[in-house]
Design a protein around this nucleic acid. Sequence first.
DNA 1: GAATAATTGGATGTCAATGTCCAATTTGGC
DNA 2: GCCAAATTGGACATTGACATCCAATTATTC
Lengths: 149, 149
Amino acid sequence: MFSQTVEYALRAVCHLAYTSPGSSTTEEIANSTKVPIAYLSKVLQGLARSGVVKSQRGVGGGISLVKTPEELTILEVVNAVDPIVRIASCPLGLKAHGKNLCPLHRRLDNAMASVEEAFRDTTLAEVIAEPTTSIPLCEFPSARPSNKK
Amino acid sequence: MFSQTVEYALRAVCHLAYTSPGSSTTEEIANSTKVPIAYLSKVLQGLARSGVVKSQRGVGGGISLVKTPEELTILEVVNAVDPIVRIASCPLGLKAHGKNLCPLHRRLDNAMASVEEAFRDTTLAEVIAEPTTSIPLCEFPSARPSNKK
DNA sequence: GAATAATTGGATGTCAATGTCCAATTTGGC
DNA sequence: GCCAAATTGGACATTGACATCCAATTATTC
């Protein structure tokens, strides 16, 4: 239901939330999140273009969050890489329906709305702070906050 | 968020609910749902394999629902063509997590669960019976219940 | 049993998502 | 200025979703 790219983006941002406000190398993120590094770099480029993360080239550079984990929601991350598109008008394109969704499409849209809302209400800080036996991400971000920048 | 195939399958089943328990030709369904007929036939084949619809070859044949609209849920249709896959264990494959989802994946799974539940609770009969200004599907199934079978 | 109505299944085509690789570029440290 | 660290961007490969077309098959009707 959610694309692979969304999954990868969330893992990456999750890692960055741990090391926030420090930065991490693409390689570090790839290792801790088990995402293919070459593809991860593309995903991170997308996140950078959307303003979710920022990148710093050169020695000591890397990727870091633009906002704090408290301010960043799951929805922002998801929408940055693979937006949740709501059904705004009749998918069959009939003018008679227009903005009035039929019962079928209203239900589909309601389902998307509930997902959107749940994601909008969850910050990265909540995700990583929640008490649990399973910390997000397999490998805990190698507690080296890479305290540059 | 939902595939094109799911959208097509739901439209087709919606049409069939109107003409239920009668049957409709693939061509009739395609016309009323504005789904490319060649692709629709593949989608219907899938629905037939999953037991949601049954097909009858030859003159006077066509496609009809196996269950009544009252018994058939949206979830059954969706799962027949593009199943909602719940997150059963850590997508990163770490044994330490196992069945314990981390906060991130638990939230993703919860979102899917809410969609699944909403779909499980909605029958086709509800969809087509609901009072509305926009009847499901653009073209009302040409009130000719094709009363064969 | 011939003609017609319909679905079925296979072959094929296109495109976006996913994934890989590498040369070019930027940057900090010596 | 030079080297090493790191991202960037382009080219390319692979796969599955979406879509089309048609010959083969099945079934009804006369």
